[in-house]
Design a protein around this nucleic acid. Structure first.
Length: 301
RNA sequence: GGUCGGUUAACCGAGUGGCUAGGUAGCGGUCUGCAAAACCGUUUACGGCGGUUCGAAUCCGCCACCGACCU
């Protein structure tokens, strides 16, 4: 019997969590969360982690298993998921992965090139270089070390340039030489389900959900994480806006308004990411029966 | 009824005769390691009708609407 990974994806607020519970119950499988912020145990309200009831009903993996100070990446996620899957498949040939982090999902589904780990000090060096000398000096360095990538990158995006530079230095060869971009074969079948709603409904849901998070104490949660505000994990919608409020830069109302806006934009970016993936079969979250039917058919076929 | 001020894109808002202000929201996109990140692109509007002018958002007249004050 072949192993199957059902992937349930969709923009933030579309309704993935509830459906993932339905599907996991129906197919008697466990859930792998592919949400780059739900990984962190200190971030609960702002990342809309499943309820305790949901977590108790279905076995979840990769939820709140790291601390905000920990380093984690899509590559580590690929490794960890591929390590976990055989264990899940030994119990049942179906597993369900759900989430909204496009790059993490792609890493599991299609693989990601092997690129050496970077010494944090090297990274620090280039970050300082950027801060002190500006992006122009980064460009100049990249042009020298990796002209091929230089001709392709977005030269205004300092993050991309820094990444390339730190790899060049660590490996002693151009970053672009690592970018094979070959899809990896997987020993399981993927069934990729996308959830979509019309834009207006989605945005209304996002706005309402933010209000609910606020009622549930998002401000308090953010306040507790204030000391960690410079960590990458906290450079997240729902937290950084509150940090600005704590710093007196904006009003509380403004912070909440910005959380809504930034969540909407995030959702749009997610949609854009998936737009070009022809493997995704899209459904309305209202049509759970159709999704189940589609999965059942795919499993048989 | 009168006097004055105002009416600019979804919103805010600058612009006094020719040269697409700007901002925000929205929309579209990029993407191989902290990705809920970072970055890029984008909407040619001047309340209505006439007039002056080679040319009007800009000047003139009338009308409509909004606001303030007067009666």
């Amino acid at each position: 019997m072949k192993n199957i990974l059902i992937v349930l994806l969709g923009p933030t607020g579309v309704g993935k969590t509830d459906i993932s519970i339905d599907l996991a119950t129906r197919f008697n499988c466990e859930i792998i969360s592919a949400d780059s912020r739900q990984f962190f145990r200190e971030m609960r309200i702002g990342t809309a982690v499943p309820t305790d009831l949901q977590l108790n009903t279905i076995n979840h993996h990769f939820i709140q298993f790291r601390q905000v100070k920990d380093y984690y990446s899509s590559s580590l996620f690929e490794r960890d998921v591929l390590e976990l899957l055989p264990k899940l498949f030994s119990k049942n040939n179906i597993a369900l992965m759900t989430g909204g982090s496009g790059m993490y999902i792609d890493a599991v589904c299609y693989g990601i090139d092997d690129i050496p780990d970077v010494d944090p000090l090297v990274r620090e060096k280039y970050i300082s270089k950027y801060k002190e000398e500006g992006i122009e000096s980064l460009r100049a360095a990249l042009k020298l070390l990796d002209p091929e990538y230089y001709s392709k990158v977005d030269l205004k995006n300092y993050k991309r340039i820094i990444r390339a530079l730190e790899i060049c230095e660590t490996a002693g060869r151009p970053y672009s030489s690592f970018l094979i971009k070959q899809k990896r074969e997987r020993d399981f079948t993927k069934i990729i389900i996308g959830l979509e709603r019309n834009r207006e409904d989605l945005y209304n849901r996002i706005n309402l959900r933010v209000d609910e998070m606020v009622k549930s104490g998002l401000e308090q949660e953010a306040l507790q994480l204030y000391d960690f505000r410079n960590l990458n994990a906290l450079n997240s919608v729902g937290y950084r806006e509150y940090f600005d409020f704590f710093d007196g830069l904006i009003s509380r109302e403004k912070a909440i308004e910005l959380i809504k806006r930034n969540s909407r934009r995030y959702a749009k970016r997610q949609i854009t990411w998936w737009n070009k993936n022809q493997e995704i079969k899209w459904f309305s979250p209202e049509k759970v029966e159709e999704i189940i039917e589609y999965i059942s058919e795919s499993i048989k076929g």
